[in-house]
Amino acid sequence: MYLNLKYPKVNNHFKFRKFTIKQENSVFKVGTDGVLLGCLANIDKATRLLDIGTGTGLLSLISAQRNPSISITAIDSEEEAASLAKKNCSESSFSKNIRVIHEDLNNYFSDFLFDYIICNPPFFKASKQLHQKHPVARQQIKFSYDLLFAKAKEIIDKDGKLGLIFPTEGEKEVLSKAEKNNFYPERLVYISGIRNGKIKRIFIEFSLNKKEILTDSIYIEESPREWSSQYKKLTADFYL
């Protein structure tokens, strides 16, 4: 979902309560999926977070605001995105919490383990017909779920969590690839664009330990262009 009709936008900036996201045409822009993922992730007790495919730096900044004591590493395979994320994070009041690195996930290694890994992955399979804008952010060219879970298993703490958001059509595939790497869902949130509408997205939080799965749902709009009370409550600390 990309519902940006009511985001406060001035000169290609998105102003949130405690930080501003500068945007460029070469980098995938702020959308509802990223905001949802950042707000739904259970990072209250996390101390080290890895943001994979950071883009504008949105997830890192939301995470830093939600948990001021967290240490964040943000990576992106695209030089333009890493540069923009570094700029956005360095100009925020959370700059000391966030380190941005230009690196491909496949080549990334860490000297320490993370207790939360967050990722808003490319939704579409790679094909000969590439998206004209942001092909790497939109299509799985440099990314695959096999790579994500395999790499996450190497660098996540034994009690760590992995949070993702993706279209509901991919649920079976993601769950299957997760289980192959011993990641198990412990929390699922089904997301509709509008009240009583079709479920379009799913947020899943994984861990390396099998637990009882908690399931919830949320819808974004009560009616067209009217945010639901659920969404307003979830994002109240961020929107102006």
Rank of each mutant, 00 (worst) to 15 (best):
S83W: 03
S127L: 06
A64H: 06
R138G: 04
K198W: 02
Q132G: 02
I117E: 01
V189L: 04
N12V: 05
T168R: 10
E169Y: 09
E226P: 03
I155A: 08
Y145P: 05
I21S: 00
K133V: 01
D159Q: 12
P8Y: 12
S93R: 13
Y190R: 12
K22I: 03
E78P: 03
T235M: 07
V136S: 00
G38M: 09
L105Q: 00
Q132A: 06
S83V: 09
H131V: 04
S77E: 00
C119I: 13
F16H: 08
I101P: 10
D159S: 15
I101L: 15
L214Q: 11
S60C: 12
Y231E: 01
Y116L: 10
G53N: 02
I199K: 09
G193A: 06
D76T: 08
F203L: 04
R17K: 15
A64Q: 06
E103L: 08
P224K: 11
G170R: 14
S110N: 10
E78A: 03
F143D: 01
F123C: 05
D216E: 12
K133A: 10
N182P: 04
I75V: 14
F238Y: 10
H13F: 12
V35Y: 09
I213C: 05
F112E: 13
A41K: 11
V174R: 01
S207I: 06
A137R: 00
H131I: 03
G34N: 13
P167F: 09
Y190E: 05
Y231N: 03
D76M: 10
K125G: 03
H13R: 13
T56V: 06
A41Y: 11
Q65R: 07
K128D: 13
Q129P: 04
V136I: 13
I118D: 00
N88G: 11
F109A: 12
K18R: 13
E169F: 10
I101W: 11
S127C: 11
V174S: 02
E79N: 14
L208Q: 13
S63A: 15
S92N: 10
L40W: 14
L105T: 02
L84C: 05
F19D: 14
